[in-house]
Amino acid sequence: MTATATRKYETVIGLEVHLQFDTATKIFCGCANKFGETPNTLTCPVCLGLPGALPVVNAKALEYAIKVGLALNCTINPFVKFDRKNYFYPDCPKAYQISQFDLPICSNGHLMIETADGEPKKILINRAHLEEDAGKLIHDNANNCSLVDYNRTGTPLLEIVTEPDLRSAEEAYNYLQNLKLTLQYLNVSDCDMEKGSLRCDANISIRLIGETKLGTKTELKNMNSFKAVKAGLEHEINRHEAALESGQTIVQETRL
């Protein structure tokens, strides 16, 4: 990478972390919230999204969300509501995910990190909102079909979204480390990326230094460790820089 003094481009990164809470039950029903059980043994009319079933929110999930919000210096909003995000996919039994749009439970927070120079830096958190996790889809090539296990459906999730404040892969890495420490201290999740308790998506773009408009972004999804996030981001930074240097335009895309 180019040295800071001669840098032409600036990196802009925003992170979305999905955190599974380890409450005893799911977010909207009394099914146990457990990982690794026999498929479709932790379901009920509510999390299967059956006709007539209705969600009732788990007080513990709200409590955990508030805890995280306070630790991340967020405003805890006195009035929150849930909304529906409609999409058709077999892992989403109601064909909508219950989430929060305009009135998230937490907003406007920050988390301190250290920059490469050892300076403290404030990373702004735009929001953290509650939502339900989706089911698990397994693609069965031998039988030319897909199989759905709804055990995970309705696991409480907190989506923590930063502002595009991170300026390098390393800063992103430091943010994730600090966030994980905070979350583990709060004892709201095992933060095990292997099990999917903590998942991270990144939005990355680069722009000429001094430019205020954001460049075309790439979305990186489903990375299974912080090291993978860092490596993925570094790769994208180099790819974007090389592309811009050779006069190409960057196409917005999602990389899985």
């Binding site: 498929p39 479709n40 043994t41 299967l48 889809l137 693609h139 069965d140 897909s146």
Partner: peptide
């Protein structure tokens, strides 16, 4: 919760304890 059998009883199609759908 419902048992696996109870939840799959409603299914249009099933395979090895899961709901079966056309390949995604």
């Amino acid at each position: 919760s419902l048992t696996q059998q109870e939840s799959l009883k409603i299914s249009v199609d099933q395979h090895e304890g899961s709901f079966k759908v056309p390949k995604v």
